[in-house]
Design a protein around this nucleic acid. Structure first.
Lengths: 203, 203
DNA sequence: CTCAAAAACCGACTATTGGTCGAAAAAGTT
DNA sequence: AACTTTTTCGACCAATAGTCGGTTTTTGAG
């Protein structure tokens, strides 16, 4: 009765690693069950389909990011720092070094998109809350908060998930954040190091 | 020696329609060749793989949009109108009524992403040129033009390609454009009708 | 017009895929 | 032990993208 739970976790874990390392599309059910040492039927006893399994794997991934974002939310930071922190925790590239590599490879489009979609879904309310705080404290000034926040997340995801983002991209993004949220000029740019790290300048 | 060209166009055309109407993933090579009345071997005489065919189909689609964008570029409009026009012509939803329906269905992710990617690739230089004009004419004021333009295109694509975008989304987008390009407040918002049409308010 | 080379075409075949199913082994319950 | 429930098994299936050797059709040079 409990054995099943463990089995499922184990399968989820194997699949997670395989999806990350070689992509969802390029990982066959046969490979998964071979690595797990089980039969086809057993696999389908736990998962109704391969895609449903992907959904669960993604669920796991999101949970992790969400928890780390919620931690940020509870920290005694000003809304500006919180905003940066949340955006950062919802941008992979941090986790393992290989996660993004695989997640954003030309293949793996499906997984990438599904992750992105759920990520934004989860992040919008959290970040909106922070922005609200920021407004109350007079640090931000804007309307249509969820819509704005969504735009921010979309852009951050789209731009920073490609390994070829430049110094200019970061600059523009910070500028955009300031203007979209109605923050004081420079209040965000000052800490741009939090986002980009040093990706080097391209060409 | 020329017969091949016609055949290929015909296949491309059939595939285009099928991809649009039922999605790339849900269209099998067998279906295509059956509709075309040819044999498997013939198909693979023209296309090295199904995916490569998709690439060519997308190429066709992009060409169309690009041409219409270039027309806008040559029109005697002020940069503000041109900007709107280009963004608009690079946002599907115009073409056929069904195109988006299929393009943005939960499946068809692969096609959607590939189209998006190439769309942005093609649009960035065009739109950058327009923004440059706008700056010369004193209508815009900004730096890092390609990066900014790219952000604009990403957002427009991400937001307006979902059938559930709201009045608020449009408002925020126009505001963002103004601020990102350093346009005079209201100079773009005035013509927001050009983008959204009337999608109704959700919920 | 002839005819060989090039282009176009054919369809049976393969390998791999995600998924099904009925039956059997394990585990738990009484 | 006798039963019920959970878990496991693996042969089997239908669909799929792609291959290949051979055949027909087109074409253009002589």
């Amino acid at each position: 009765m409990r054995k099943g739970e463990r089995r499922k976790e184990e399968l989820l874990d194997i699949a997670y690693r395989m999806f990350i390392s070689k992509g969802y599309e390029n990982t066959s059910v046969d490979e998964i069950i071979e690595k797990a040492g089980i039969a086809k039927g057993t696999y389908y006893y736990y998962f109704k389909s391969k895609e449903q399994m992907l959904e669960e794997v993604i669920g796991m991934m999101i949970e992790k990011e969400k928890r780390s974002a919620e931690e940020v939310l509870d920290m005694p930071l000003d809304p500006i720092m919180k905003t940066m922190g949340i955006i950062r925790s919802f941008t992979p590239e941090v986790d393992e070094q290989t996660i993004e590599e695989a997640l954003h490879s030309p293949e793996n489009i499906v997984m990438h998109e599904k992750v992105k979609k759920r990520l934004i879904e989860e992040a919008v309310p959290l970040l909106s809350q922070v922005v609200e705080e920021g407004i109350k404290e007079g640090l931000f000034y804007c309307d249509h908060i969820p819509e704005r926040v969504r735009v921010l997340l979309v852009v951050s995801n789209e731009i920073f998930n490609e390994e070829t983002f430049t110094e200019g991209d970061v600059l523009v993004f910070m500028d955009m954040m300031e203007k979209m949220l109605g923050a004081n000029p420079g209040s965000l740019s000052a800490i741009k190091s939090l986002i980009g790290g040093d990706n080097g300048t391209k060409e």
